[in-house]
């Protein structure tokens, strides 16, 4: 390098250092402000997640994707079964999310009953990735204070954890708007249930669409782990399929992969996917998700079926736990 070049390098490094210092100051400054907002009043969605992970108390937990979040009315289950109930379903997630959250929850609390809703696309690869992304978004703000979150993060999304350790803003990535604006829907007050209203279905009933999907074989392992983990803790598990409003199908690659595990461990399986009682346009928000009306009808039926079944086969489940949140 010539003398002139070295001067250019020195000038460049000086200015880069100034930028790095400024960036550090702004990253920490804005990051601390977001942390303050987050701790003071977390968005309800995050509050619901934090509750399931850190302070679980309910007797019944319902896990699954957006079909659960919008389709299972916690209060209907609570009233019918006489137990406390929380809907832990989350949009765009699958069994990976349910397994990770349940593993963490079981370290603190053993519910009496867990309902897991599986979908016909449960093992689709992009759902696995989406689950990791959502877990990353929800857990990363806590990685500096919660060692178990850090452990899970390092296993499932190590790059995101590394970035979040470098930058405080990264920890609150994509949460700026919810933290600044807040949100009207209070999921926590509805015990995790997220109602959607009305219907947007028009025209013919479409066929189930899974052409070109790729599948992740590890989803099966997560599913099996979920089942065995609950059985080891003597927690009653019921696996369900909630209704669809698409042309009838009997199976899918995902369901075909999971069914042998359900049979192997003799898990109770209730399939309402094409139950004629719910195959009504006015019960659906779209072809996959029940609206509030449909969710109430479906939850009432499932809760009643469960109650009958539990009274007959497992009456101890229906005894309310003393620690449950009122």
């Amino acid at each position: 390098m010539t003398r002139e070049e070295i001067n250019h390098v020195v000038r460049f490094l000086k200015k880069l250092s100034i930028l790095a210092v400024l960036l550090f100051i702004f990253d920490r400054g804005i990051g601390l402000f977001l942390q303050y907002l987050y701790e003071k009043d977390p968005p309800p969605d995050i509050k619901a997640f934090n509750h399931v992970m850190n302070t679980p108390q309910e007797d019944v937990y319902i896990f699954g994707s957006s079909k659960v979040a919008h389709g299972y009315v916690s209060n209907v289950f609570a009233d019918t079964l006489g137990l406390t109930c929380f809907n832990a379903g989350r949009e765009q997630t699958n069994i990976l999310y349910a397994d990770v959250v349940m593993s963490e929850m079981l370290r603190k609390h053993s519910p009496k009953l867990v309902i897991l809703d599986i979908t016909a696309k449960e093992t689709v690869a992009h759902n696995m990735e989406a689950s990791k992304l959502i877990l990353a978004n929800l857990m990363i703000p806590h990685i500096n204070t919660d060692t178990s979150f850090l452990r899970i993060g390092k296993k499932l999304f190590p790059k995101e954890v590394f970035a979040a350790q470098l930058s405080m803003l990264q920890r609150y990535n994509s949460q700026v708007l919810p933290l600044l604006l807040g949100t009207k829907k209070n999921r926590f007050e509805e015990n995790g249930y997220l109602p959607v209203h009305g219907t947007k279905i028009e025209g013919e009933i479409p066929a189930f669409q899974d052409k070109g999907e790729s599948y992740d074989s590890t989803a099966k392992d997560y599913f099996e782990h979920f089942v065995t983990m609950l059985q080891a803790k003597n927690v009653k598990l019921v696996i369900t399929q909630s209704p669809y409003y698409v042309q009838k199908f009997t199976t899918s690659p995902s369901l075909a992969a999971l069914m042998p595990i359900i049979k192997k461990y003799n898990v109770e399986y209730l399939d309402y996917s094409f139950d004629p009682e719910f195959f009504r346009k006015d019960y659906f928000y779209d072809n996959v998700h029940l609206n509030d009306k449909g969710a109430h009808a479906f939850s009432a039926r499932l809760a009643s079926d469960l109650k009958k079944d539990l009274e007959k086969n497992d009456p101890s489940v229906l005894t309310k736990s003393q620690t449950a949140r009122q």
Binding site: L23, A136, F157, K159, S167, N173, S174, V176
Partner: peptide, 21 residues
């Protein structure tokens, strides 16, 4: 100029998607 750099980087950190594949 430096405000511009910072703004661009901070927006990337705040709302960028880092696992978009």
């Amino acid at each position: 100029r430096y405000g511009g750099y910072l703004l661009a980087i901070l927006i990337i950190l705040m709302i960028g998607v880092f696992n978009g594949g």
